[in-house]
Amino acid sequence: MDGQTETEVADSKTLERRLRYERLSRYWLLGAGLFAVALFALIVLTLAHRSIPIVAEHSLIELLTSANWDPAQNEFGFLPAIVGTIYVTILSMAIGTPIAILAAIYIAEYAQGRTKVLVASFIDVLAAIPGVIFGLVGLIVVVPFVGDYLAPAFGSHSIGLGIVTVSLVMAIVVTPFIISLSVESLEALPDELRESSLGVGATKWETIRTVLLRAAGPGIFSAILLGFGRVFGATIVPAMLIGGQTAIPDSPFDAGETLPSLIVNDFGELMSIPLTQSALIFAGLMLLVIVWLFNFGAMFIRRRLQRRWQY
């Protein structure tokens, strides 16, 4: 066009190019998002597809309620592993959560200066230690401790390997993780909350208990549920320390099996029996579905808490 100078033409070209990128960027990002969704769907579908043989031969109810796991005899009862998983999850969280919350309160509200830095960094390091190292230390320290002292103290007998051993070690694995996330939630709270509470004459502890724990509640709650997911899906520590017994445990000191440890321990060994692979894949599917339900429930409850305890 004759009315336009050279710079104006150049500018309009630049604009054109910028707008083209703008349109394209939408597609890249959409593509990346869809990829994540597709990946999840692919995993679920693969697991579901490969589980069909076992579900076709044994009913779902039988698989979930039979206590007899003996692939060589065509017996595929998951109940022992399910019970073991529930035991380990509940025990570790029961041990770990109270310690984690108290430690988080100490770090966020009481520790100061160098002590705070030291304790916090120590806990971060603990959270970064690979699970297999906890497994090894568990074998050296916790197994004899449980076998020789803890089980006899409760009037029980244990070879050292078992559900309590796994739970103790998993509590140690998961505690630093919950502490870190809880400290973050507490430290993110505005000082106005503390000042408002202290300003009407509340003590520090009253402020923490009534105000700060509520305000940080949704965050702490998420931390605990993420911890639950971690223990639930933990593989290496149970595989090393649980003792691999596919029977329903009579006492928490017994050896047992969790769903993940069942998969790792049996996957290589029992491949000669055709249905075993399908059964173990079915176990994997169960884990996935439960973890997914967990996250979904956590999101729902978190939202309710956020509304109730908003500040």
């Binding site: 505005p190 106005e192 909350l193 000042e195 408002s196 509470s197 202290l198 300003g199 009407v200 004459g201 509340a202 003590t203 009534t210 105000v211 509520r214 305000a215 509640g217 109730r308 305890w309 908003q310 500040y311």
Partner: peptide, 29 residues
């Protein structure tokens, strides 16, 4: 200290609700 702070109350610049109901915000102290 809590008794001193009860006698000298403080209202912060940013309006701040405690994570409690309207009723319990007043009843807190």
């Amino acid at each position: 200290l809590p008794e001193i702070r009860r006698r000298v109350g403080y209202v912060p610049q940013k309006p701040t609700a405690l994570p409690l109901s309207i009723y319990n915000n007043v009843a807190y102290g």
